[in-house]
């Protein structure tokens, strides 16, 4: 049996090798769900304790910017999925284009987030003891902004890491490291990127669209 140049010696074949890589990534994604889960639990507890505060405080968030960011992330999820498909079909140029598009969309997301953050910092809608804003009716409004900054902050950090990983993948594709025979690193980075999108799919209604 001919050995692939991509096959590490401790695996039987490429399929087992890529299955192992993907399983490792899924186990990591499981821990990511629990990482965000901690803040989601805090959200649930405090929202039930201070329902009026959450309703009133969420009106301070910009629904238009939040919606645009949701659409941007969904399209970036689509482009990364298409990049992986391109690699499966050995379309290297198209794969590079889709990866660049994903990175640019991630950048757009962060720029919009930057404007949202600077507006909140300007108004003093900050977490915990840094909260100086006076316009929210209800008990302990600073808690909403603590949770807002925690959730979107950890999420934004994931976007940054995702952008770095996507850039790394782009460089490897450009150097011709991958082919339709071996592309599991892009697949695994893609899984990570989709999870970042998944988390945002829940963050968005929980923070911006509280009924």
């Amino acid at each position: 049996m001919a050995h692939s140049k991509y096959l590490a010696h401790h695996f039987t074949d490429l399929e087992q090798q890529s299955d192992s890589a993907k399983l490792g990534m899924w186990l990591f994604l499981l821990t990511e769900i629990l990482l965000f889960g901690g803040v989601f639990v805090a959200y649930a507890v405090y929202r039930v304790w201070h329902p009026d505060t959450f309703i009133n405080a969420h009106k301070e968030l910009n629904v238009v910017l939040g919606t645009v960011n949701t659409l941007v992330l969904i399209v970036s999820s689509l482009t990364v999925a298409l990049a992986i498909r391109d690699m499966q079909l050995d379309k290297r140029k198209s794969c590079m284009r889709n990866l660049i598009l994903t990175i640019v969309l991630a950048g757009v997301f962060l720029v919009i987030k930057y404007f949202e953050y600077s507006h909140k910092i300007h108004l003093g809608q900050l977490p915990g003891k840094f909260y100086t804003f006076q316009g929210v009716e209800g008990t302990n409004p600073h808690i909403f902004f603590s949770i807002y900054f925690l959730l979107t902050g950890i999420h934004g950090f994931h976007i940054l890491i995702g952008m770095s990983l996507l850039t790394w993948m782009f460089l490897k594709v450009r150097k011709g490291h991958f082919s339709s025979e071996y592309f599991v690193p892009i697949e695994v980075v893609g899984l990570y990127w989709h999870l970042v999108d998944l988390i945002w799919i829940f963050l968005f209604p929980l923070l911006y669209l509280i009924g």
């Binding site: 399983l23 499981l30 769900i33």
Partner: peptide, 12 residues
């Protein structure tokens, strides 16, 4: 694996 993660979150 994903469902196991979600189950843990639900218990949490």
């Amino acid at each position: 694996t994903l469902l196991a993660g979600i189950l843990c979150l639900m218990i949490f």
